[in-house]
């Protein structure tokens, strides 16, 4: 049973290991999906999808770097 549990945790961890990153990515993809259905000829959908994913990665990496930086004592 513990092997199955470890296996399940590992599979989930493959996709959801990095805190808020997967949440933002899924939210952005959902927004693009909704816009695609709502607006028939939405221009620049590809650029929106790609740009949004890149912006989410950049924000997440930079905030992780700031959070990991050593704090000033006191």
């Amino acid at each position: 049973m513990s092997v199955l549990w470890t296996l399940a945790k590992e599979i989930i961890g493959m996709f959801l290991a990095d805190g808020r990153l997967p949440v933002w990515l899924i939210a952005w993809i959902a927004i693009i999906a909704i816009l695609t259905h709502a607006v028939a000829e939405l221009p620049m959908r590809g650029a929106l999808l790609l740009g949004g994913v890149m912006a989410i990665l950049a924000t997440n990496v930079l905030s992780s770097a700031r959070a990991a930086s050593p704090r000033r004592p006191g």
Partner: peptide, 9 residues
């Protein structure tokens, strides 16, 4: 996207 971005990050 979730898997690749996790590795890239």
């Amino acid at each position: 996207v979730l898997f690749g971005m996790a590795w890239l990050r």
